[in-house]
């Protein structure tokens, strides 16, 4: 408790920089997306390029000195292209090599070896030609299938938008009960039995918002808001306002008029009136 109090005091008067979800369209995003984003971007991926030391303390064999173990992960970089590939947790490492004891360090990039291969999704009943690493294939093999690999691996290890998008599709397909396999009911049942257990970890809202990048999610929510709004022409608004005012003034003609413009005949355009072949809508 004491440390908490100290912290809050420390933060007093310090400007808190607004985060991604505190301002603009980001603030409109649902909790389901925020959860995914936290899992995807703000969690340390599992160690692929280094072997983390186990335990809390290490004793020096020679001196007997005890030191804490703090695993500082190797910084990884993900290029733009990796979003359309499946790298299976691998990434690019930028660093230095010390090739000779007496020479200066040399910059070096450790880049994963990529190859084009095919992955097969049982749930979607589709084959995908994708660029993968050997690690991806061996992970698929050790997980006994691409679907198992996708569904079992958390977002911080899948990393690429392609993998996350596929995972969303698989989850959605499972949630809907595999409609693509309608013609083979036996296979459908078998696959549902096999993969249904993975659905327990997600709510349907979380599945809906899984695997979008931040900008994609923003565009999506913007579009959703736009769809919900119905644009009413101003002439209809002004007309209703005018009629209201006239009614307030107890003018008899206004009493018989409807507030809705569609019933007054304003809804039909002047062009429809002119067109001898155009039929008037009967509603």
């Amino acid at each position: 408790m004491a440390s908490k109090a100290v912290k809050s005091v420390k933060n007093l008067g310090v400007f808190q920089k607004p985060g991604l979800f505190d301002k603009g369209v980001g603030a409109l995003l649902p909790e389901a997306y925020r959860k995914f984003y936290k899992e995807w971007k703000e969690t340390e991926p599992s160690a692929v390029h280094y072997i983390p030391e186990e335990g809390k303390w290490r004793r020096d064999e020679l001196t007997g000195e005890v030191q804490p173990i703090q695993n500082a992960p190797i910084p990884l970089t993900y290029p733009k292209e990796h979003n359309s590939h499946l790298w299976g947790g691998e990434a690019i490492i930028q660093g230095f090599q010390l090739r000779n004891k007496n020479s200066r360090r040399v910059p070096h990039f450790w880049v994963p070896t990529l190859k084009r291969s095919v992955v097969h999704s049982e749930v979607l009943d589709k084959y995908f030609s994708v660029i993968v690493t050997d690690r991806t294939i061996s992970l698929i093999n050790s997980n006994y299938g691409f679907d198992h690999y996708l569904l079992k691996t958390p977002a911080y290890d899948l990393k690429s938008l392609l993998a996350l998008g596929l995972k969303r599709k698989v989850l959605k397909e499972l949630e809907a009960g595999c409609p693509t396999l309608k013609d083979q009911p036996e296979l459908q049942k078998e696959i549902l039995n096999k993969y249904m257990k993975y659905l327990n970890a997600y709510t349907s809202d979380e599945i809906d918002w899984y695997g979008y990048s931040f900008t994609e999610a923003c565009r999506r929510i913007e579009r959703k808001i736009e769809e919900q709004e119905t644009i009413v022409p101003l002439k209809h608004v002004y007309r209703a306002q005018l009629i209201d005012k006239l009614r307030a003034a107890h003018i008899e003609e206004a009493m018989t008029q409807s507030l809705k413009s569609s019933e007054s005949g304003l809804g039909t355009t002047w062009l429809q009136k002119m067109n001898p072949f155009g039929k008037k809508k009967t509603t």
């Binding site: 599992s46 390029h49 190797i74 450790w110 994963p112």
Partner: peptide, 18 residues
């Protein structure tokens, strides 16, 4: 939710380990 009963094998590294 990671069920250990199905295919939880040791992690495989097919990459540079630094």
């Amino acid at each position: 939710f990671l069920l250990k009963s199905v295919c939880q094998k040791e992690q495989i590294r097919t990459t540079f380990i630094l």
